[in-house]
Nucleic acid binder design. Structure first.
Lengths: 112, 112
DNA sequence: TTTATATACATAAGAAAACTATGTATATAA
DNA sequence: TTATATACATAGTTTTCTTATGTATATAAA
């Protein structure tokens, strides 16, 4: 998933859900480009990680899908379901707690 | 590893190395208790995660060990090797970058 | 014109990390 | 004597991600 970083394991679902909470709907390739842009190319979301993650979120009922043909190419748009909208709140809180704990464990609190 | 959190995957080595960078030497059980104390019981480091991680760090030459008998019980003390002292600096920088990226990706920047 | 790159999806095989469960052993508190 | 705490270890399983591969269209470069 990352250029040289093991740390993002487990954060992918939260990242996807959060992007969809602020973008209404997105398709897979768009998500990879968005992540790349936000992190200035430092975090490269691989298809092998993204698509299975999207399929799992859909299977879990957190995402709705709509397939469209744009310029002869198929796009599969994803958006948050009702469940997804609730879950993203939990996931973001967990991420905040995680970061707080990690900052304490690694003595990084002083940098803020 | 965590009470209800998948997110710490990949951070264990960094946590161990950082604890040893500020404690001279520690043994396994002591590390589990320290993590528990720092996170107020919210992050429980399991033996099944800790001991293999310690063995790997030792095998990679990042940790030195010294076995001692304390009150009829065997303790295996771990300390940073020269390599470990260098590596902990890298790992901490990676963790800082990781947190920064994650805060941007999840729109958490505003909380600081 | 053919080749590379970008767009857009998908999945199979493998590796890495952690979890669950189990095992050994001593010490102490209930 | 039973449970809990201390102290180590590992086998089997699951989850997650990476690598590699496959299909297909569009466009820019050589």
């Amino acid at each position: 998933m990352a250029v040289n970083n093991e740390l993002f394991k487990g954060t992918l679902q939260t990242i996807i859900l959060n992007l969809l909470s602020e973008n209404e709907r997105m398709y897979g390739y768009e998500i990879t480009q968005k992540v790349k842009a936000i992190t200035k190319g430092e975090l490269l979301l691989k298809e092998g990680a993204l698509y299975p993650a999207l399929h799992k979120l859909e299977a879990d009922g957190l995402l709705d899908t709509a397939t469209e043909v744009v310029g002869n190419r198929v796009r599969k748009y994803y958006s948050l379901s009702k469940s997804g909208e609730k879950e993203v709140v939990n996931k973001l809180q967990e991420a905040k707690d995680f970061i707080a704990h990690l900052q304490v464990l690694l003595n990084l609190k002083s940098s803020f």
